[in-house]
């Protein structure tokens, strides 16, 4: 499970910019949790903090009982991360890339080749295993990255915008995979996204973060009820703010604006 305790990350002079501000959160074992928020809300910073990629300014968190401040290596071993915009090694083949990731996460050499082949077959990439990643489509690259996050079979998985770059078919496949990982493999899954239907469909509970603060937490129904709206989209706008209908065409009313 994941538990954060006033987890904070501040930047700038005197900590003026609060990327994540005193986040208190609990994600239960086997749960699929969604962190929603507009761009720049602090979702990726939260994921990076929980994966020990960056260090918090204050507060801490534990993942499966391992403290992110004191047990960095153990935390990294129990988590898998699909980052929002990771850099792939374009000059490696899919097989070579997964081999690298397996070695980095200490997957024993006697089971690594078989696991790589299994994952490549699962994602329909087995026939292209020896092609360099530079020739892969975005969707195929995303599949390789998901396979890399799974290579050491971690109990906790972080997916930062897992379907944002995928075509509908690949997005459906990823969604199905996440569902199975949660339902059949009992993984704890933490999804960050601003695509509301994905989170709505996959997550048992969601949190909404804005300007570093967790401002709503609960099931989709609970959040809709709290905001007295009809859909998650309306609830999200109500909580985080948006442009009102009457403002949308205001720009046309300026004199001389039409060409």
């Amino acid at each position: 499970m994941i538990r954060t305790d006033k987890l904070s990350k501040y930047y700038g002079k005197g900590g003026k910019i609060k990327a994540v501000d005193e986040l208190d959160l609990e994600v239960h074992e086997g749960e699929t949790f969604g962190l929603l928020g507009p761009n720049g809300a602090g979702k990726t910073t939260t994921v990076r903090l929980l994966n020990c990629i960056i260090k918090p300014t204050s507060g801490t968190a534990t993942l499966n009982g391992h403290d992110i401040l004191k047990e960095e290596m153990e935390v990294k071993r129990v988590t898998g991360l699909l980052a929002e915009s990771p850099g792939l090694y374009d000059k490696l083949s899919a097989y070579e890339f997964l081999e690298l990731m397996g070695a980095l996460y200490d997957v024993p050499g006697n089971i690594l080749p078989e696991r790589i082949d299994d994952l490549l077959k699962l994602f329909g990439l087995y026939n292209r295993r020896d092609y360099l990643l530079e020739g892969y489509s975005r969707g195929m690259k995303q599949k390789v990255l998901i396979a890399a996050a799974l290579i050491h079979d971690p109990p906790i998985l972080f997916f930062d915008e897992p379907t944002s770059m995928l075509d509908p078919r690949a997005a459906l496949m990823v969604k199905d995979l996440i569902k199975r990982l949660a339902d059949r493999a009992g993984k704890t899954i933490f999804i960050c996204s601003h695509i509301l239907p994905i989170v709505e469909e996959l997550c048992g509970r969601i949190g909404i973060i804005n300007q570093g603060k967790l401002i709503a937490l609960g099931t989709v129904d609970e959040i809709i009820a709290q905001t007295e709206t009809k859909t998650l989209e309306e609830a999200f706008i109500a909580i985080t703010g948006g442009v009102e209908d009457k403002e949308l065409l205001a720009w046309r009313e300026q004199r001389g604006a039409s060409a």
């Binding site: 990076r48 990629i53 980052a83 850099g87 990731m101 980095l104």
Partner: peptide, 13 residues
């Protein structure tokens, strides 16, 4: 490019 760094920093290394 710093993208690859995220992969490495997330690993126990």
């Amino acid at each position: 490019r710093t993208g690859q760094l995220e992969i490495l920093r997330a690993a126990p290394i």
